[in-house]
Computed example of a mutant assay.
Amino acid sequence: MATIVENKSLYEEIMQKAKRVGEVAELEAMEADRNATISQRVADIIREEEIHRLILPKEFGYPQLDWRTFVDMISKVGYYNLSASWLTYFFSAHNSWVCYYPKHIRDAVINQGGFVADVFAPIGKVKPVEGGYIVSGKYNFVSGINYCDWVGVGAIMQFEDNDKPERVGILLKVSDLEVVNTWDSLGLRGSGSNTLIVNDVFVKPDAILRFNKIVEKSQPPYEDFDQDYLYYNTPFYPGFYVGFAAMAVGGAERVVEEFEKHTAGRVRFSGVNEKDSPTSQRVLAKLKLELISAKALLTEYITMMETDKSGPYEGAKYKAIRAEIIEKCTQIGIKALLTLGGHSLLKGHPVELFARDLIAIATHITSLYEDGILGYGRHLFGVQTNIQG
């Protein structure tokens, strides 16, 4: 079963938008690396092209993308710059959880037009008070927060209709919080994943998003909703995490092309052209095959999302496929770097930059290879894993 592009002319339009973002981010890659954030210019282009609105419900008047188009858009930006791809993905996908809020909240956030960040690690402290809650916490790794007006943060809460505490998301205005510039990483430096301080901020009960309810049923709790919306028709977590694999594939494709180009122009001290070396020939063949494999797995992942809709699904399988894709892409970056030799270590060499960024993608909690593969193996033997995707 092939994944479907529902509107070919829209697909081409979206690829051009992605190319525009990617090309500018590529030109500014080293500046973003030094500054630990993409520039205002790149953020403005994402906003101008309305990329953060492309997977909203149709009631907001923007073109809904199918999964193939959305994934290829993220991969396209990733081909040029992975930090920009990371934020292109997040600024698009983060509106998805906003769409599970009551209408007055979702309209307020989306119509205001700002970017949305999130960090759902359940570390926040929530204290009930009259009329709502007081929220506090220190959250690290809040990607793109420099350019966001809204943010979702995580906590654990107890509700009367559940005998167990559950993980929640809490919507806050960034203007009510403190952003601390702490991002100094090996890779994805342009993501600007800084620290957020939430200090005794009041929220009303309707700002609390119960993820358990979304997992139970991908459709929202209210009756009048867009039946065609992507996230209402696929398991939520697999759909929310697909961008990590998508950007990795785009970055790996660029690495393979750079490896081939630099190998073709490389001459050893002995005078031998490196493209005539059996070593590099074998490595290029292997890199190409691994990329083909990663792309095929990504297509399988999309097919699963299109098939599973909002019914029962194998969360552990999704996580394992995503981890396998990202592992393959990361190893493409590392193998290319090691085979090209010392000149590819120079700061700003595209393989050096992409290899660092691919490693950073692989360290994300949803990408960890050993976790993903072990979880799927346990699932295959009938062990309850509680992996949601």
Rank of each mutant, 00 (worst) to 15 (best):
D118S: 15
T3Y: 08
G190W: 05
T195I: 04
R106C: 05
I334W: 01
D66S: 09
A207E: 10
F225N: 06
E28H: 05
Y241V: 12
A320L: 06
H343I: 02
P102F: 07
S9P: 00
E257K: 01
I214N: 02
A285T: 09
I373H: 07
E274Y: 05
D163P: 08
T263M: 07
M1A: 13
L196N: 06
G131L: 11
W97R: 07
A25N: 08
S185K: 12
V21S: 09
I197H: 13
A246S: 15
G137P: 08
V351N: 00
T385W: 10
E216L: 14
E160Y: 11
D308E: 15
Y229P: 03
L374R: 14
V180G: 02
D371A: 12
K275G: 00
N7T: 01
R282H: 08
Q16P: 00
P122T: 04
Y231Q: 10
Y79N: 08
R282V: 02
N162C: 12
A155T: 06
K288C: 02
V180R: 14
P238E: 07
Y11S: 04
V129Y: 05
G348R: 11
E6M: 11
I45M: 09
L230D: 01
I197F: 13
A264L: 14
L82E: 11
P205H: 11
Y301M: 10
A362D: 13
R20C: 04
V116T: 06
S193M: 12
G113I: 07
N273W: 09
I325H: 03
A252L: 06
Q227V: 11
I361K: 07
G154C: 13
I170S: 06
N212F: 08
Y101K: 10
